[in-house]
Design a protein around this nucleic acid. Structure first.
Length: 331
DNA sequence: CGTCGCGCTCG
DNA sequence: CGAGCGCGACG
């Protein structure tokens, strides 16, 4: 069952609709957790989103990918200057709602349907709630808004095919980092070459990882030609040449395990336990190609959401600790 | 059109 | 308390 969401984004709606995404900081500027920002990680592919700005719902969107870590979009300019530079990017395919729907006009019907906490608008006045960003709403609220207006439901269904995906955005972010590396006069050419090869898990980085890791932690596969040298702390988020080339910042994974790890669907804790993100259920894991070997090896069909894959070194643990911020923890 | 201050809601 | 992707007034 899809979920339904409502986003208040008066300040950035133009950019976010144009770019087919939503972006939020991970926390408030003082570090406090925010239910509305955490909802960015709860939103799943196929969910519906209502876009609220200038006091009306003007667009309807469909989530096309899980959220992932990305810098604050440059096109925001002055808007949200107090937000952190790093946040969640949620790909959403938007279509226009015509005519726009003013919640205030429907507030008598809408009010009782709204949640008592974390509501996107005041249930009696119908005014937008400044505290709110991405708010969870009931199917009834969604239906009430959308009734009477027109949006291209078929386009929303097709939307995923031609909208932003993790691969495309990640590619853009990595390209920008790669340009910085190439322009960095403090790095010599051999280091630059190693750093750029490391992006694809090749060269010196892979050799360094192979000194630490021997097989895929999830599937047990040892054949090097079947394994990818994957960064624990993602290449695009590393802060130095040292981090990008550090063998302790890598794991050897089969491609499907790498896919799940890279997106934060699975992670590892200090004790070497596998953590499965609560936003992914078992059928999702299977659909995403979770290796049959792993299912046999760990009895996944019967097993709890965590299982043990062996100890990590202290340095690996420090990288894993960063990666775990990628894994959504409920509450 | 942008800025400012008043709200309310949340931790 | 302070923080926040709203709102309307005022220029």
């Amino acid at each position: 069952m899809p979920q339904f969401w409502w986003v208040n984004h008066n300040q950035t709606a133009r950019q976010e609709i144009e770019g087919q995404y939503l972006w939020s900081p991970k926390t408030e500027s003082n570090g406090a957790r925010s239910e509305f920002y955490n909802n960015m990680r709860r939103a799943s592919p196929g969910d519906f989103v209502l876009s609220f700005f200038e006091q009306a719902i003007r667009y309807v969107g469909r989530v096309t990918e899980f959220a992932f870590t990305a810098p604050k979009p440059a096109e925001f300019k002055e808007a949200g200057s107090y937000w952190n530079k790093e946040g969640w990017l949620l790909p959403v395919f938007w279509t226009q709602l015509d005519p726009p729907v003013r919640p205030k006009a429907l507030i008598e019907v809408l009010g009782p349907l709204l949640p008592t906490k974390y509501s996107p608008i005041n249930p009696t006045s119908g005014s937008g709630n400044q505290k709110a960003y991405l708010a969870n709403i009931s199917p009834a609220v969604f239906q009430t808004i959308v009734d009477g207006a027109i949006f291209d439901h078929a386009a929303l269904e097709r939307g995923g095919a031609n909208s932003l995906t993790f691969e495309i955005v990640n590619e853009q972010l990595e390209d920008a980092v790669e340009r910085q590396i190439k322009d960095d006069i403090s790095l010599d050419d051999t280091v630059k070459k190693s750093l750029i090869l490391a992006r694809r898990g090749q060269g010196r980085f892979r050799a360094n990882v192979e000194m630490v890791e021997r097989s895929c932690r999830l599937t047990g596969v040892t054949n090097p030609s079947l394994l990818i040298a994957s960064h624990i702390k993602p290449w695009r988020l590393c802060n130095s040449a040292q981090e990008r080339l550090d063998g302790m910042n890598g794991l050897l994974l089969t491609p499907d395990a790498d896919h799940l790890f890279d997106r934060g669907f699975i992670s590892f804790n200090d004790g070497g336990e596998v953590l499965v993100s609560p936003r992914v259920d078992r059928t999702d894991l299977q659909r995403l190609g979770f290796d049959q070997l792993a299912m046999q090896r760990f009895g996944f069909a019967e097993a709890p959401a965590t299982w043990h894959v062996g100890a990590f070194t202290a340095q690996q643990q420090s990288y894993l600790a960063h990666h775990r911020t990628e894994v959504f923890v409920s509450g």
